[in-house]
Each structure stands twice: as C-alpha cells, then as structure tokens.
Design a protein around this nucleic acid. Structure first.
Ligand SMILES: [Mn+2]
Ligand SMILES: [Mn+2]
Ligand SMILES: [Mn+2]
Ligand SMILES: [Mn+2]
Lengths: 220, 220
DNA sequence: TATTTATATTAGACAAAGCTAACTTTTTAT
DNA sequence: ATAAAAAGTTAGCTTTGTCTAATATAAATA
C-alpha cells in the first residue's frame, strides 16, 4: 500500500498538470516532458497506477487522478510546502534553494513528523513562494490566479505568489527587487510583444510578457 | 559518484559491524544478518562496492572499509545522529521513535542542510542515545565502552549511552526508570547467569546479563 | 587426517523503472 | 476526405537490487 518515491512524483506531476490544463486532465507526453522522461516510460507507469486505482484513463485517452490519487498528491504537496517553509525560516535557505531539497524531504514517511513540523512552524498558510499549504485534512483554497500580465497601465498590485520554482526564475525575481508582498505599479505595456515596465520601491524595470505571466498578484 | 541509499546503508552496516568485531573486519553472512538480506545479495553488492574502492576484501576473505568507504560511513552516521537529535529535541519524538525516521532522513543530499541543522541544534556532541556525533571533518572520539555488565557489586555509575536503537530495548530501559545520566548502583550479581540487581532513584530492578551488556556507563 | 559444518560465491530468475525503435490511433491541416 | 503530424502504445533491452538453489572454500571437530 505504500507507494514508491517514483509513484508519488508521478501523482504530483499529474496533479499539477491537471490544474494548469483547465480541462482538469493531462496527457502522456505532457507528463513525460514535465518529468524529463520518455513517453514510453510514462505509459508504463500509468498502467501500474491505473491498476492501483490512482489514475483513470482509457487507452489513447486523457488522464485524470482518482479521488484516491488526488488525496496522495495533495498530502505530498502539503509535505513539500511545509519542508520548504522549514528550510526557508529555520535553515537559512533562500527561496530559490528550497525546492530541490524539499523534493527529497517530501518522501519521508512519518505522519508524526509532518504534524509536529506543522506545529513547530506555527501552522503556516503559505510556503516561501506564496503557494497555499493544504491542511491536515487535505483541504486547500484555490485563490484566483491573476497574473501580472493581465494588468493594465496604471494598475497597482501586490505580489502574492510565483508560478514557478525554477532557480533562474526565482533569482531573476529577486534580482529586480521583487519578493512576496512587493507593491508593483504597471507603468507601460508594449502592444508589440506585451513587455511591461513596472515600478517597485521607486525603481523601474522592463520585463517580458512571459515573466509577467509567472507572477501572481492581487490588485490594490 | 553519488551513492544510492542502498549503497550507503551497506557502508554504514560495515562500519558498525567492524567496530563491534574487534578484528575491525566483518563477514558476508554477518552483514546479511544485520541488514536482513540473503548472503547472495550482500556478496553481489560487495563486488560493486569493491569496484568503487569503498570496500576491500579477497574472495572468501573478511571485509574492511577503505578510507574512502569509512569516510562515507562516518558522514552518514553524523547525519543520522544530527537528525535523531532534531527529532528528539524539536519534534517531540521519544528516543525509541527517532531511529526509524532518521534512517530515512540520513539519505537526504544537501550539505547546506546538514551544516545549518548542526548550527540550529547548537553543534550537539551526542545524540538521544548518548552516541557521539562526528564533527564536520568526520572526526570523533571513541570513548571507552564500559558496560554495566562489567561492574562489581557495590559499584556506582552513570549511564552514558546505549548499544542498541531497537524499540523494545529502549522502551524497556525507560520503563525501569533509566535514561541518559541516570545514576545506578549495582546491588547484587548472580554468579549463575550474571543477572544483576541495580538501584536507581531509590528503586531496585533485576535485569539480565544481556540487558546489562547493552548499557554503557562511566564509573563514579 | 578426514569429515562435517559454517561461510562465501556463482548461476539464474525476478520486479522496478528507465530507454529506443517501431507501430497504432487520434488530431490537425491541406 | 485524405494526408501529414502529433500523441500514445508496444516490444524488447538495460540497470539496480533482490531472491533461491547449487557449488566452492575455509574452519572446526572427531
Ligand atoms: Mn519528489
Ligand atoms: Mn513552493
Ligand atoms: Mn538508512
Ligand atoms: Mn542514535
């Protein structure tokens, strides 16, 4: 009944891709791309996960997690984000360093450790990237994901979270003086390519549309 | 160059068995017994570890760790004991609960995490079982291991550490009111089987020779 | 010394998770 | 509607780490 680290990582990938895909489904090749594996390997694992009733799909059809599969994925995400919070708050890790180590720590099997860690951290609501941490029952609120890219010239907002945990992206965000809760004003948007000039703390930076799509904000 | 969890566990087993074996060597069957595997599996792995210059032996001969193998083992033991200390001091684990989870945590790959954890814990010298934690350079002092069983009637001592991390043993130690630093007086020793009656905190208990051999003490 | 017992090794099989190359089905574009 | 492209599947091979059964060597005992 205990899943391997590998099986857990597949379920987590399926969960993330299903969320992004608004159809709430994912494809084999997409999973392969996401995990850096061949489609053949993914197909092979999907058969196994279907056999364990964690994933549902028809041959040549799209993939969904079963309730059971979703539950495993959410508990894993909870562990991942609690560990990231621990590393950031108590181990002096920067927000671009936490993900890689949390990717390992999330697979530690000990329910006592997780509930104690949660208590130790003061039941945090968000991880160092602003992502919401599911509670002990696996419940979590999906907040509206408004991207910086969707704002108009003159709009003001606060940075709530980032889409991506990749090191280059997070370092870039920091380098231009942004962090969680940063106040941002949209000063200019290029019709040509969506490039955006933003102001924060008195400084102005021009960022690509791609960048702006990876930054989640709330309007103020 | 990075070793698998399995390879690491073999090296740790060899290190522990070599220490116990006063010959400073271990046997294939002994490793198999210790890890709960077949001798064939162990032999197979030993070939691989010999190929990586972590273990040295001749066919049908006894096993020793190379300097390189010893260094891996000691670093692993350091991580194990630091994690046990963390679980015990900050996660409300009892001393019989820490080992199992530390067995997983010791394989997390992050030198930053270990050095920060060490700092966070205040550079502890001993783990929750009284075992000495090697320092960052892999240095550690082997203190004289005097067992309770070696004492005479009338001797008084202090419990410094325990040989074993098994749950039943540790729970038994606690149940008779012993813990690290407990003061113990030997009240009686049976010539027949080495059973020993000990006094601690005003209470008296009779324990087997086997038990007394698993308790390390310093005379006072 | 000869025999028995203990210890170590080899051969061959299996499960997990990955790969490439070839093939099938579905989707998209002409 | 057909052809081309994309997505998904299958077949067959590899590596890692395990097993059992058979065999070889070393140690202990008679
Ligand atoms: Mn992971
Ligand atoms: Mn995160
Ligand atoms: Mn281990
Ligand atoms: Mn210990």
């Amino acid at each position: 009944m205990t899943l391997t680290k590998t099986e857990e990582d597949y379920l987590k990938a399926l969960f993330h891709l299903s969320l992004e895909n608004e159809s709430d489904k994912a494809g084999t090749n997409q999973v392969a791309e996401y995990l850096g594996l061949s489609p053949a390997s993914v197909n092979n694992m999907l058969k196994k996960l279907k056999g364990k009733d964690l994933v549902a799909y028809e041959k040549y059809g799209k993939l969904t997690l079963t309730e059971s599969g979703k539950s495993v994925a959410v508990r894993l995400i909870r562990k991942h984000r609690l560990w990231e919070t621990f590393l950031f708050k108590h181990m002096n890790f920067t927000w671009d360093e936490v993900h890689e180590v949390a990717e390992q720590l999330e697979h530690i099997q000990s329910s006592k450790l997780i509930s104690e860690l949660d208590k130790f951290l003061g039941h945090p609501k968000r991880d160092p990237h602003g992502a919401i941490i599911p509670n002990e029952q696996g419940e979590y609120s999906l907040e509206p994901h408004i991207t910086l890219a969707s704002l108009q010239v003159g709009d003001t907002c606060r940075l709530t979270s980032v889409r991506d945990s990749s090191v280059p992206f997070l370092q870039y965000v920091s380098r231009i003086g942004l962090a969680l809760s940063s106040r941002i004003r949209v000063a200019e948007v290029q019709a040509f390519d969506g490039s955006m000039t933003i102001e924060t703390e008195g400084n102005a930076y021009t960022v690509s549309k791609k960048f702006a799509e990876h930054v989640f904000v709330e309007k103020i």
